[in-house]
Nucleic acid binder design. Structure first.
Lengths: 232, 232
DNA sequence: TTTACAGTTTTGTTGCAACAAAATTATACG
DNA sequence: CGTATAATTTTGTTGCAACAAAACTGTAAA
C-alpha cells in the first residue's frame, strides 16, 4: 500500500497495490465527471470495470465513501452524491477557509517560473473554452487551482482540499454547459497571478475566494433551475 | 456499512458492520492515547485485539491510514504518527482555519441551554484536573470543543476537524504530563462561553483560536525538549 | 393508476488460504 | 565488536466462496 494522503511526500512510497490503483482511477473518473450524481456503484461492477477482483474494488469504494466522495443511499447502496443547496453551501464555506489559507500561503513560496507555469495553464483553459471543450476546460481549471495550492507547501492541506473538490466534482460536470458559458474564472485567475507576482498573500486569497464565490453562485443557480424543472 | 462521514445525519444509518466497529474502536483508542506515537499496527494483531477476522481489521487500518490518523513507515508497516515540528505547524494552521470557522458559526445557532451544557463539561474538566486525572481532562476537553463545533450545524466541517484531532491525539497524550500541569485552556473556555452567550461569533472564534495557539506553543515546546533529550 | 406483497436476484460482508514481499533474526565475515 | 549477508518469520494483499440482507421485479388487490 502506498501513501494514502496524496501529496504527502517524504514517506518512502512503495509500489502501489491494486486497491490504491482502483482508488486513483475511480477518483479521476469522479472528478472528470464520468459518473453522474445519483449513479449507483457496486463492488462487482467496479471490479469488472477495472479488471480486478472484488477486494480492491471494495477497498476503493470504501475509501471514497469514507471521504464522502461517495455516499450511502441505503445500507447496501453507494451512489455518487447529489449535492443539495445546504451541502453545497457548507462545502463552499469550508473551501473558502481552506483554499483561502492555501492561496495566501502560496505567496510565501512563489517564484517567477511558478507564475509562468500558471500562465501556461491559463492558456490551456482559454483554448479549451474557445474550442467549446468544456470538460477539458474544467480539468485545466482544476490543475490551475491546485498548482497554486501546492505552492503553499502544505501537503495535508492540499489533500484535504482535494477531498472537497471530489465532493462537488460530479455536480459540477452535471451542470457544466450552464457553467462554462460565462467564461468562468478568467478574470479572477488573472488577478491571482498578478498578486502572486507581487507576493501579495491577502491579494491571492481575495482573488481565489472571489473565484469560489462566483462558482458557488452559478452552481446554486443551476441547482435551483434543475430543482424547479424536475418539480414540474 | 453505515455512515462513513461521522456526524452526517439524514442518511438512514443501518446496522454497523464489523469494519466500522473496528474503525470506531481504533479511533477511540488512538484519541485516548492507548497507542503511543511510533507504535506499529499489524492487521493480525488488530484482528486479535478486537476479536474479528483480518478483513474488518484491515478495513479499519486502511481507513485510518487514508485519513492520516495512521501513517506508513515502510511499505508494509503502519504506525501511529510521530508529529514533527513541521507537521504540527501545518495541522495547527488548518485547525485555526476550520475550528475558527466552526466556532464563529456556532454563535449563529447557540441557545442558553447549550451554554449550560458547556459549563457542565467545563466542571468535568476542572474536576479531572483537580484529581490529577489528566487523561480524563483531555477527554473532557475534547468533548467541550466538539460540543461547540456541533453547534455550527455543519456536519462535514465537524468530521474534518475530527480527523485533525485524530492526528495530534497520540502526541498530545504522549506529552500530557507537561501539558496538563498548567491548567490548559480554562480561561479561553470561559471567554468562549461568555461570547457564546452574547452570540458574538468573532468573539467565540478569537477565544478558540487562542486556545489552539496556546496548545500549539506548549506542544511545540514539549516536542523540542523531547528532541533535545533524545539527541543526547 | 397506485399500493402492498411475495419471490427472485443482486449485493456487501466476512473469513480464509495461498502467495509474494518485507521485516526480522541468525549467522558469518571483516 | 560492528557489519554485511543469508535464513526465517511475519505481514499485507488478493481472490474467492458462502451467507445474510437488501434491492429489485412481477403480481395481485384496491
Amino acid at each position: 500500500m502506498a501513501v494514502h494522503v496524496s501529496e504527502l511526500a517524504n514517506i518512502d512510497r512503495a509500489a502501489e497495490n491494486l486497491g490504491d490503483a482502483a482508488y486513483r482511477q475511480m477518483k479521476e473518473r469522479i472528478i472528470r465527471g464520468v459518473y453522474r450524481p445519483g449513479h449507483k456503484l457496486t463492488v462487482r461492477a467496479v471490479a469488472q470495470d477495472l479488471d480486478v477482483s472484488t477486494t480492491p474494488a471494495r477497498d476503493a469504494i470504501n475509501r471514497l465513501a469514507s471521504e464522502a466522495a461517495l455516499v450511502y443511499a441505503g445500507p447496501k447502496t453507494v451512489v455518487v452524491p447529489v449535492l443539495d443547496a445546504k451541502a453545497l453551501q457548507e462545502i463552499t464555506l469550508i473551501r473558502l477557509a481552506l483554499e483561502g489559507l492555501a492561496a495566501q500561503q502560496a505567496a510565501e513560496h512563489v517564484v517567477p517560473q511558478d507564475v509562468e507555469a500558471l500562465r501556461a495553464l491559463q492558456r490551456q483553459i482559454n483554448s479549451a473554452l474557445d474550442a467549446g471543450q468544456y470538460a477539458d476546460a474544467l480539468w485545466h481549471n482544476k490543475e490551475f487551482h491546485f498548482a497554486i495550492f501546492r505552492l503553499a507547501r502544505l501537503p495535508h492541506l492540499v489533500s484535504m482540499i482535494e477531498t472537497l473538490w471530489l465532493r462537488i466534482g460530479p455536480s459540477l460536470h452535471d451542470l457544466y454547459p450552464e457553467f462554462a458559458k460565462e467564461r468562468f474564472g478568467v478574470h479572477n485567475h488573472e488577478v491571482a497571478m498578478e498578486a502572486l507576482e507581487e507576493r501579495d498573500g491577502p491579494g491571492v486569497r481575495a482573488a481565489m475566494e472571489n473565484d469560489i464565490r462566483d462558482g458557488y453562485r452559478r452552481l446554486r443557480r443551476a441547482c435551483r433551475e434543475r430543482a424547479t424543472r424536475s418539480a414540474q
